[in-house]
């Protein structure tokens, strides 16, 4: 096997892992940190994609449109928390039902507002040549985006006062309240953060994955599996599991077919959960 094949394979599998991680971190915050099973996560990604599309259509340059989409989705998530999620903390099945209903509403609203086909914005046509192979620069750029995104999220949740109070409010609500943490407001902010991350995913992935009403469905299953297999040390666990699953899935799909890639992805998740019932990070001593 040639060296150029292996080099592009490595890069393309890293980009697959990056796409998976970008689509998953929002869920890692909501489910891993807050324990909220948000079945509308995929539709939040779709929301971000359409918000970006809307912004570019009225003439906003794409980089600013990403910022716009992230903020709008975060605000939307905050409203959802205030109206729905807030009333359902600790009631896992009710949250499941409510967010599933929300996902149906969002899906059908997108069909009604934007129709079934909307012009996309397209990937920049520039690529890197490695021997006989070439790979899209944008996909390589996504690897960098994923790294920066996770780094800054880690910093936000461990080093800033918001991050520390946010984790306190979730770990022990009453004690946190006793020392003066306004946990209700902090929870709204954390949910908005998770939503904003989903919106960012929709926005940054938009060139590669066109906005369609049902695009969320493609992400949500793998994102959930990655977060569940990650376990209690949410962020580091998700990075470890997500990048492993993404890379292994990509490499098997490159040698055989995407069906085999998916099978390996699911088998690996099952194996991880058999060996580590609490998730891979069940015995880790990291904070996040």
């Amino acid at each position: 096997m040639e060296l150029d094949f292996l080099a592009t394979l490595l890069l393309s599998s890293l980009s697959s892992a990056a796409i998976l991680l970008i689509a998953t971190v929002g869920l890692a915050v909501m489910f891993g940190l807050m324990g909220v099973i948000n079945l509308a996560h995929g539709e939040f990604i779709m929301f971000g994609a359409y918000a970006t599309l809307f912004a570019t259509q009225i003439g906003v340059p794409y980089p600013l449109a990403i910022v716009f989409a992230t903020i709008v989705t975060a605000i939307f998530g905050g409203i959802v928390e205030l109206l729905i999620i807030r009333r359902l903390y600790g009631r896992i099945f009710d949250t499941l039902l409510a967010t599933w209903g929300l996902s149906l509403v969002l899906y059908q609203s997108a069909v009604l507002i934007f129709g079934t086909v909307t012009p996309g914005i397209g990937l920049p046509i520039s690529n890197v040549q490695i021997g006989d192979y070439s790979i899209s620069v944008y996909l390589l750029f996504l690897i960098l985006v994923a790294a920066v995104l996770i780094g800054s999220l880690y910093w936000l949740l461990t080093k800033t006062s918001y991050g520390i109070t946010a984790r306190a409010a979730i770990q022990d609500r009453e004690t946190a309240s006793a020392v003066g943490v306004e946990s209700a407001r902090i929870n709204t902010m954390t949910f908005a953060l998770g939503s904003g991350l989903a919106g960012f995913a929709g926005a940054i992935l938009l060139p590669a994955i066109p906005a369609t009403p049902n695009m969320g469905f493609a992400f949500v299953i793998k994102a959930f599996l990655a977060v569940v297999a990650a376990g209690p040390v949410t962020l580091t666990g998700t990075v470890a599991v997500g990048s492993t699953l993404g890379m292994v899935g990509n490499i098997t799909a490159s040698f055989w077919t995407s069906v085999v890639g998916d099978i390996v992805f699911f088998l690996l998740t099952i194996t991880i959960l058999r060996i580590f019932p609490l998730g891979i990070s069940g015995r880790w001593r990291l904070k996040l």
């Binding site: 599998s13 192979y133 590669a208 493609a218 990509n250 799909a253 995407s258 069906v259």
Partner: peptide, 15 residues
């Protein structure tokens, strides 16, 4: 390459 309708990342196919 035969792909499920839910696949969004085509880098293995392109490879």
């Amino acid at each position: 390459d035969f792909l499920a309708l839910t696949v969004t990342d085509y880098s293995p196919t392109i490879q």
